[in-house]
Write a protein that binds this DNA or RNA. Structure first.
Lengths: 152, 152
DNA sequence: ACAGTTTAGTTCGTAATACCAACCAATGCA
DNA sequence: TGCATTGGTTGGTATTACGAACTAAACTGT
């Protein structure tokens, strides 16, 4: 996949928006990279913490979320496990599969990091009036909903 | 910086929005990681391509954008340079400084990758009506403008 | 003008990250 | 049952990233 690159020609509206999304993602990544480093985490580990915040996932699914190979994940999870941030558990319905989840420590660290992220992004948010914040949130949510099936 | 974690208590509006921003950033990151891998690039190298698309930067400034140490950048840029994607040039106004810029090849690859990103994010965008797209873009732009001084 | 400090970048050594290929175990299907 | 597929791990290698130590240029104060 990730093919084409020669499509119906995206309208200006669309490409401007995508530029904005990419820009915000890059900016957020820069902030997140710094925050992660402050806690001796890589950006990837931080993402793991965020992704597992409200669910447990099998290795392969987590790899898909991250856009990484399964083999990369084995080491990643092992190191995080050694640090007491995540745990592994066998999937009862499939003896091959392994579920990964956050430990209490992992949840804690995740919460702390989230708080710092809030701090970092505060100037961005405070540039908007309350009504605009709600509006932005709504639009983002609507757009994100559409992509959930993407990973399936 | 990256301090606190105990602040006035962000309103629900704010934290919901930040969650959305983070979510969209993580999702975008996953897509970008895959796209980058397809072109034998790391996520970081992809970011370099994107950041340098419309400007040349000194090593330190680029490191700040990426949230990385200067020493990390030396190798990163060297490898990209060896691949012909970026070039180094001395800053005429400061003999210590080095400016990094994209070569034609780098620009090319950046453009291709952008196109694929557009493909990947298309489902997300097409969930919105044209008016909503404009609105989302506007709000993002407004918010992002506010953070530009952040890196200074 | 000149010593001392700061700033810009590189190099070196080490650990983490990420890939691929090869592998084992459990599933699924024919 | 037999064989391909799926889920994960292991091992080998290149990249990524950090910190510490270093050189060179620019800024300070006197």
């Amino acid at each position: 996949m990730t093919s084409s690159a020669q499509n119906p020609a995206p309208s200006d509206d669309t490409s401007a928006l995508i530029d904005g999304l990419a820009h915000s993602a890059f900016l957020t990544m820069g902030a997140l990279t710094r925050i992660a480093a402050d806690h001796d985490l890589s950006l990837t580990q931080l993402r793991v913490l965020a992704i597992l915040r409200d669910r447990r996932l099998r290795m392969t699914d987590l790899a898909d979320y991250l856009g990484l190979e399964k083999s990369t994940l084995s080491g990643l999870v092992s190191r995080a496990e050694a640090r007491g941030l995540v745990g592994r558990a066998p999937d009862p319905s499939d003896k091959r599969a392994v579920e990964v989840f956050l430990t209490d420590d992992g949840l804690h660290l995740g919460a702390r990091v989230t708080a710092e992220m809030t701090d970092q992004l505060a100037p961005l948010v405070s540039a908007l009036r309350p009504a605009e914040r709600r509006s932005l949130h709504e639009l983002l949510a609507k757009a994100l909903d559409a992509t959930v099936p993407m990973k399936a």
